[in-house]
Amino acid sequence: MAEPTEPDWSRVRLHIVTGKGGTGKSTVAAALALGLASHGQQVLLCEVEGRQGIARMFDVDPLPYAERRIATGLRHDGRAPGVVHALHIDAESALLEYLAMYYKLGRAGRALDRFGVIEFATTIAPGVRDVLLTGKVFEAVQRNSRNKSATRYDAVVLDAPPTGRITQFLNVNDELAGLAKVGPIKGQADTVMTLFRSPRTAVHLVTVLEEMPVQETADAIAELEAAGLPVGAVVVNQVRPRDLSSADLEAARSGRLDFVAIEADLVEAGIDPDDGLVDGLLQEASDHAVRRALEDQQRELVGGLGRPTYELPRLPSGIDLGALYELAGDLKAQGLA
């Protein structure tokens, strides 16, 4: 049987990153943007959930509804790296821009905002809200020579809603079915879907090696495929170091580690092995081995999802800008960025 070919992500212009809450999808999206910028590219990192997560990760001021340069990419082959810009998209600002573009409501649109009409519209009709958010992402991807004053991006990375809502968020045509059958909003939804269902888009899913996130990832893949949306890679985040052999892990799980040898090693290291120390270490080893066995089971399930898979390590010191560059290097080395 022929070996599977490595996926070619170079044709993808829009990388959508989703995952169950707590899996680190925002971190992966930021690292992916930095990795893509290592090719000398102009990259836009977008967020749509209103949490200002990008600003916190990159240690910059809260982002307005405007594109801001926030970082440079990794260096690659001695070439100058590209640049990462960021955009915080909120539905109210997107609606004001939409009204100005399609209905020429400049000051009038801002007046509506003061009266709370925009908040009402985007709350009462969440399908419209998603069209506005995705429409702004579409505009950033589709820029061409006619957008003379705007930056043209080689890639756009979207930190998207979590897996439980991702298909609903992206499948804006279905969401609008009972709200708008004709008109500019429907036309914009149709146009956005041409991009979302094309080979220029990939929806990447972030998980950790735990039962619920892996199952939610599998469910999201099935829903995305049923909706005709292009599933990309699965990124397994926060992977623990694999620095113990299978034999040692099995011995730890079964209680067969050598008590005397461990005690002797502690003495040699200048540590007094008091009554409870070795027993505590043996229990820790057993717990770790059990955890590793559960992770290995989940890794097998991820491997059965039929998607390209990439792994990122758990970073004990937490996530700061240096950690993002480290993860970006991992994604680049593995071929996703």
Results as ranks from 00 to 15, higher is better:
residue 128 V to P: 02
residue 180 A to M: 13
residue 188 Q to V: 12
residue 140 A to V: 05
residue 148 K to E: 11
residue 219 D to Y: 11
residue 149 S to K: 11
residue 177 A to S: 15
residue 230 P to F: 06
residue 190 D to Q: 14
residue 127 G to Q: 09
residue 139 E to D: 14
residue 242 R to D: 14
residue 157 V to Q: 03
residue 145 S to W: 09
residue 175 E to P: 00
residue 109 G to A: 13
residue 172 V to L: 01
residue 144 N to A: 10
residue 124 I to L: 13
residue 149 S to L: 12
residue 228 G to L: 05
residue 160 A to Q: 04
residue 150 A to S: 12
residue 160 A to Y: 03
residue 203 V to N: 05
residue 198 S to K: 05
residue 124 I to P: 01
residue 126 P to L: 08
residue 161 P to H: 06
residue 171 N to S: 05
residue 114 R to D: 02
residue 195 L to C: 10
residue 114 R to K: 12
residue 240 R to A: 15
residue 180 A to L: 10
residue 234 V to T: 07
residue 136 K to F: 00
residue 106 G to L: 11
residue 202 A to M: 00
residue 185 I to W: 02
residue 215 Q to H: 12
residue 185 I to H: 04
residue 197 R to Q: 14
residue 171 N to Y: 06
residue 212 M to T: 15
residue 239 V to D: 00
residue 249 L to I: 07
residue 187 G to Q: 15
residue 117 V to N: 01
residue 217 T to E: 09
residue 214 V to H: 03
residue 205 L to Q: 01
residue 159 D to E: 10
residue 136 K to E: 14
residue 144 N to T: 12
residue 125 A to D: 14
residue 154 D to R: 06
residue 193 M to A: 06
residue 124 I to A: 15
residue 122 T to N: 10
residue 249 L to E: 08
residue 223 E to W: 06
residue 158 L to I: 05
residue 243 D to H: 11
residue 197 R to K: 15
residue 131 V to Q: 01
residue 156 V to C: 07
residue 143 R to M: 09
residue 109 G to V: 00
residue 240 R to M: 15
residue 240 R to C: 10
residue 181 K to M: 14
residue 238 Q to F: 03
residue 219 D to T: 12
residue 198 S to V: 04
residue 239 V to R: 09
residue 249 L to G: 04
residue 212 M to V: 15
residue 158 L to V: 01
residue 173 N to L: 13
residue 244 L to I: 03
residue 247 A to H: 11
residue 189 A to Q: 10
residue 173 N to C: 07
residue 151 T to A: 14
residue 161 P to S: 08
residue 130 D to P: 04
residue 244 L to N: 12
residue 162 P to C: 05
residue 241 P to F: 02
residue 120 F to N: 02
residue 250 E to M: 07
residue 193 M to Y: 09
residue 224 L to E: 07
residue 203 V to I: 14
